[in-house]
């Protein structure tokens, strides 16, 4: 499977990773080998086969519409890298779309 550096960079961007040039080379190789390994799947006879959702074919259970979660902001924000005045902080986001 031929994988270009451009494809690898595009995927890294989608996945929010930033491989350095050495790693990028390594990834081109490794991902190429893995995709080649995946190519076997094309041999499978899967016409008319439904993709599997849950091994036991069970349905979703649901919960009642009740508020049972207490306010644990202090606990949750104690483990935050940067939270002040109850808000998580990030570098400025330019547009709020």
């Amino acid at each position: 499977m031929d994988l270009t550096a451009e494809t690898v960079r595009g995927i890294a961007k989608l996945a929010r990773l930033r491989p350095n040039p050495d790693e990028e080379q390594r990834l081109i190789q490794d991902l190429g080998a893995i995709l080649e390994f995946f190519a076997q799947l094309s041999e499978a006879e899967v016409d008319g086969i439904e993709p599997m959702a849950h091994p036991l074919e069970v349905d979703q259970r649901m919960r009642e519409d009740e508020v049972t979660e207490p306010d644990r902001r202090e606990d949750y924000q104690e483990i935050a890298p940067d939270a002040r005045e109850g808000l998580y902080r990030v570098p400025a986001v330019l547009d709020s779309d």
């Binding site: 519409d65 979660e69 902001r73 949750y76 005045e85 109850g86 808000l87």
Partner: peptide, 29 residues
């Protein structure tokens, strides 16, 4: 207009102090 969120039991009430109605599920712990 449900009382709790779609996938968590935190309140949906408008106007609370920031992050007081964000539980572990909403924070994706």
């Amino acid at each position: 207009s449900t009382r709790s969120k779609l996938f968590s039991a935190a309140s949906t009430q408008y106007g609370a102090e920031p992050n007081r109605q964000a539980c572990g599920i909403d924070l994706a712990l």
